[in-house]
Structure formats: C-alpha cells, structure tokens
Amino acid sequence: MLVVALAPNFDDPGEEVLEALRAELRCLGAALLLIGTDHSFCFRPDDELVEEPSTDELRLWAAQLFRAQGVESEALTPETLLLGLLDDGGSLRWHTRRELDGDPSLALLEAARLAAKSALAPAPIGVLSRREVVLTSLIGALSLVLLEGCKRSEPQRPAPSASAVSSLAPAPFEREVTLNVNDKDYRLSIEPRVSVLDALRERLGLTGTKKGCDHGQCGACTVLLDGRRVNACLLLAVMVGKRKLTTIEGLAGPAELHPLQEAFVAHDALQCGYCTPGQIVSALGLLREKRATSAEAIREHMSGNLCRCGAYPNIVKAIEAARDAGGDALPARAT
C-alpha cells in the first residue's frame, strides 16, 4: 500500500506530526510518497525523512493517477492537498481533496487519518475502466521503483553517518556474545535489541521455540534459563551471559523422546501443535518446581501457556502422567 499526496510546498512537518504520521502509516502498512512543488519525500513508517527535489516526471504521474479518478490536478490551487491510497495492485482505492487553511502538515495528517479509516472499510467495487487499470498499474509499478529509493532509518543516536545507511554496514551497537543452548556454545554478533527468541530462530536455526504474541502473554516461546522457565521473547540475548538455555530441541535423547514429549503424544495433548513446544518446556519447568500437585495446581501454574485449540484437558493429563513417571529430569547434558 502506498499513500500518495500531491501538495503545495511543505516544510519539515515537525517531530510530533511526523510521529503521528508514522503511526497512521503503520496502521495502513503503507509508505508515504509526498510530492510538493519543489521537494518530495518518500518514507516507510520507520524510515528517516529524506527530502528529494521534485521532478516534473514525478508530478506528472501523480497528476495522471488522480486524473484516472476524475480529479483534475491542473485545477489545484496552492491551497489544495490531494491524498490517495494506492493498493498493492496499483489501483487507487480511495482519495480525498482538502483545501488548506492553516498548517499544511496538519492537513496532511488529517488526510492520512481519513485514509487509515477508509482502509478499514470493505474494499469498494472496482469501477475503473480497462484503460485506467492499465494506467494505475503502471503508476503502481513506478511507485514501487521509487520506494526502492527510500532511505532506511538508522538509529537516531549516535547520529547516523551517510555510510551507515547502507544495509551492509554493521549496526553501530552490535556486539559479540556467546549463547549456550542445549549445552552447545554459539558465538554471535548481535544487536542489543535482539531477543533470545529471535536469536534462536533467526540466527541459530532453532525454530522449535515458537513466536506467538512476542509480548510474554502466550508462552509459545518458553525456554529454560538455568533450568527455570522464562519467556524467550522478553529476554534480550545480550543479557543471558553464561547462563544455560534449554529449548525443545534439547529435550529428547539421541534415540528416545523426553518423558514429557512421550506423554503429550500418548495423551493427544495438542491439536495444531503450535503452542506445544512451549507447553512441554513450561511443563518441564513446572515439574522441576514440584508444584504439579493436582490438576488444579497444574492449571494454575500452566497459566502462562495459552492453547487456542483448547487442548487444555489433555495437556493437564499429559503433565500428570509425566509427573507420575518421574519426568522432571533435564536432559543429562543440560543439568
């Protein structure tokens, strides 16, 4: 999705308006292409704002884009703002025209908010002619090329240097860490913002640990940290230090499943299976806490693991069975 705005000259909209614009763009999942008389800018929600000189070519295709919707941009006065929503197929789904009587950047924000609202409404029935479809598709393709030129944002502090914009340059805060996972050391160069969950999945290829909510609410990412269950999404990889991580991949022996894994299979304690690695690792943490004393206690102490299929009754049964079979052992190498 691309938000295209054709407008008279804009100054820097200022940090507050820019933040609010970013929020609307995030909501739309869109980038903004603003074409002023002298300057244009194109940015995605997390990009920095970089102005480029407007070219006649750019203004021309924007004018064509709106003309396809019956809006004559030649009739625009310096006090008019045109803003449209271009979908991924290159079709203009919605547009608005606003007369400016005040801060143009506030009018831009207002128009972007309307666009965000319109995007929530059901898609309109297409009424474009064949010729218009061809035209708007071309414009859509062109806009994608322009977007390629967007400047990716870099951390605000320290001030990004021009060379840091290149995605090939190392991130400024990256550092070397060693993660011990399932008793094996992995050396990584990593940014402080990377969670253990992302490090496991994206860097180490250990995708058994699942990303559900990424906010510590669902438990799909549960791992053991020195034998105790934690949410891998809430733990920054740079903070782990020498402590040992155990993931679902570390539970089974060379030839046999862990007793908890066996119990989950035997009791059919899953449907889609997405939450299951988290459930099993969490259950191992629970058994090690010696608190699985009753079905009620299991339900209470497994409350950090959600199952949207609703396999809870069998999850409780599986944990009771594993408890009775002495299934609280960590794999020997991780103790």
Partner: peptide, 9 residues
C-alpha cells in the same frame, strides 16, 4: 501476579 515464566525473570 503475571505468569510463572514472567515471575522467574
């Protein structure tokens, strides 16, 4: 408060 996983951290 919270969940066992969160209380551990």
């Amino acid at each position: 408060g919270a969940s066992p996983q969160i209380r551990n951290l």
